[in-house]
């Protein structure tokens, strides 16, 4: 589904990303972990064609994302606040996303039903603008907006950050369901090793822009990762 080849990104003299080869299969749930500055967000931005790599390419369904824009139709993403339009109300924002992807009234209806529990009555039907909401609620809106067009590929940067415990659990269940029922390919980065090992079947550890580990999740993964990061310190 996603193929990365010889991807490098250099800022000044530091190489922040250097991935000779990486393949993500359809339906795979791919977790990206690493300390601050390891290159996680940079990698996601390259995948979403938000920054121009110095060399190499990212191919989505065998098309270079920088040359062909078809991937946008089947890719949902939420990296940070910059993906929200902060002067809209949540309902207006979802309406805008629906218009951009050409969703019907029925689709919107279904979306609201599906996410009723996730929103927990804090998001919809309110007159507050997105910029007036707490960061946790903004995060919910961003994630929901990414899922709204029922994408085949989902890219989330730190989705668990600033969510309350109940919503973290709901999000994990939601992601698992998406994987099982719709075979969504998921790319998720996280600092929280617990969450990411629970949701992802494959974990890649990034350090200084390079892939240090590429493991299939098993019972021991969490321990392995913990010892890896502990040793690092």
């Amino acid at each position: 589904m996603i193929d990365i080849k010889d991807l490098t990104k250099v800022y000044g003299r530091t190489t922040v990303l250097d991935i000779p080869e990486l393949h993500i299969k359809k339906g795979e749930s791919f977790g990206l972990v690493g300390n601050n500055g390891a290159g996680k967000t940079t990698m996601f931005r390259c995948i979403l064609d938000l920054i121009r790599p110095n060399a190499g390419e990212v191919r989505s369904k065998d098309e270079n994302v920088a040359k062909n824009e078809d991937w946008k139709i089947y890719t949902g993403s939420y990296l940070d606040d910059g993906f929200l339009i902060d002067f809209l109300t949540p309902d207006e924002y979802f309406r805008f996303v629906a218009d951009v992807y050409g969703l019907s009234e029925g689709d919107i209806q279904n979306f609201y039903e599906d996410f009723e529990e996730f929103f927990n009555e804090e998001i919809t039907g309110k007159k507050k603008l997105i910029r007036e909401l707490s960061s946790g609620n903004r995060q919910k809106i961003g994630i929901a907006g990414a899922l709204m067009p029922k994408p085949e590929i989902l890219v989330l940067d730190e989705p668990f950050i600033s969510l309350d415990p109940s919503t973290q659990i709901r999000l994990k269940n939601l992601l698992r369901k998406l994987k099982q029922e719709q075979e969504v390919t998921m790319l998720i980065s996280s600092h929280d090793l617990n969450h990411v090992t629970e949701v992802c079947e494959r974990i890649v550890v990034l350090q200084e822009g390079k892939i240090e580990h590429d493991i299939k999740t098993s019972e021991n993964t969490l321990k392995e990762l913990e010892s890896y990061f502990a040793v690092d310190i």
Binding site: K72, D80, G82, F83, I85, D86, V100, Y101
Partner: peptide, 12 residues
């Protein structure tokens, strides 16, 4: 500028 990334990743 506040939501430019959002526009770039949507199929517009």
């Amino acid at each position: 500028s506040g939501y430019f990334d959002a526009l770039l990743t949507k199929s517009i």
